Amino acid sequence: MSLDVQDFAVQNFAAANLLRRPEPVRIGGFVAGFDPATASPYVNYATPLPGAAPTDAEVAALVGEFERRGLLPRLEFAPDAAPEVEPALRRAGFTTEAVHEYLVCTPATLTLPAGLPPTRTPCTDAEFAEIGAALAEAFGGAFPAPAEGASLLRRTQERGGAVRFVRAEDGRCAGAASCSAPAEGTAELAGVGTRPAFRGRGVAAAVTSALAGALFARGAESVWLESSGEGSRRVYERVGFRPGGTRLYLRLAAPLP
């Protein structure tokens, strides 16, 4: 799959996925997804449609929708799929929060290395809460609070996505990850986290490969995720993920004049 095709697939997915939020909103060439159950900016954000060329008025309307809800105006998108969006947002005062490389896995590239720990699918409230707490520890508090995180993970699984975790020998959840339901032929794998005490034991590779395999079994043509550094990239490449493109995160640094 070429870079241009993959960028458009990822961006089409981003828009379709936000339309699944409890309160989706379309504004010009943007789709914003809102969930009143949380104020997290990592759940409530917007993305452009591929090829969007927003006017300043559309950007202002998008900002107003966030501010009306008391939320931080924030976007995530593949800039090469909508090259006119970034300049329009920067004119409005948006600044860079992060730039991440994304990697893509297909059924043809997925590999299952030997020796990985077995993974489990959570079923009970206790298991979802345990996973939420483990991810909160893994990400140093950046992940939603345990109770909220558990609720979001359960919702992901109930709505056609998947969650996998590894139980350590001492009975604790060692690490976990989740993957969205497929949309536009692809699915996003996210929140791969391992508790510090269990790192270096193949936990991340195990949950990543298990989730990709589960989504391929449901008909997804590809699964993609974002790499946050060389260490994590090596883990993902080990199970068949390959470079795909770039995702840009922008947030409003100052109110519109």
Rank of each mutant, 00 (worst) to 15 (best):
V59L: 03
F66N: 02
A138D: 10
L153G: 15
A212I: 12
P196A: 03
N12A: 08
Q6V: 15
R68Q: 00
F198R: 00
S40F: 05
Q6G: 08
G193E: 01
A88W: 05
L112N: 07
A214C: 12
P144G: 07
A60E: 05
L112T: 14
T109G: 06
F128A: 12
E221C: 01
I131L: 10
T38M: 01
G202R: 13
A98N: 08
A129V: 08
T96I: 12
L72N: 05
G171V: 10
A16H: 02
R154L: 13
G240A: 08
N12K: 09
L71D: 03
F30S: 05
Q11W: 04
D125A: 14
G93L: 11
Y249M: 07
V207G: 15
L252G: 13
S222G: 02
A60S: 00
P146M: 05
A168H: 14
P107C: 04
R21H: 06
E188M: 11
N44M: 01
T106C: 09
T96C: 10
A253N: 13
E188D: 08
L152P: 07
L49M: 12
Q11L: 15
G149T: 14
A168Q: 10
F216M: 06
G231F: 09
R164V: 14
E230A: 10
L153V: 13
P41D: 03
A57I: 04
F198Y: 15
R26K: 06
P107F: 06
G245L: 07
G185K: 02
R201E: 13
T96K: 11
F66I: 06
L248P: 02
V63A: 00
L248I: 00
R68T: 04
V43Y: 00
A39Q: 10
A254S: 13
P107G: 04
G29W: 12
D4Y: 09
E148S: 10
D7C: 15
F94Q: 01
P48W: 03
A52K: 09
A206V: 15
L18P: 07
A168C: 11
S151K: 14
V223D: 12
V239C: 11
G191H: 10
E226S: 06
L75K: 06
G161F: 01
P24Q: 01
L250Q: 04
G28A: 11
T208N: 14
L250C: 08
F139R: 04
V166N: 10
A254G: 10
A39P: 02
G70C: 00
T186W: 01
F8R: 14
A82P: 09
T38I: 08
A15E: 08
E237L: 08
A214E: 15
A9L: 13
V166T: 09
T95Y: 11
F13G: 01
A14G: 11
F241I: 06
A197R: 07
A16K: 05
S180L: 04
A187M: 02
G64W: 06
L62E: 00
A206M: 14
L250I: 07
R21Y: 02
S2R: 15
G64R: 05
D35H: 01
L62T: 00
V207S: 13
G200F: 09
R20I: 00
E221N: 03
A88H: 05
L189P: 14
A52I: 07
V59M: 05
A15W: 04
R26T: 09
T156L: 12
L248S: 08
A78D: 09
G149F: 13
V99Q: 06
L103M: 13
E97A: 10
A14N: 15
V5F: 12
F94N: 08
L3Y: 12
R90S: 03
C105I: 09
A205H: 06
G193Y: 03
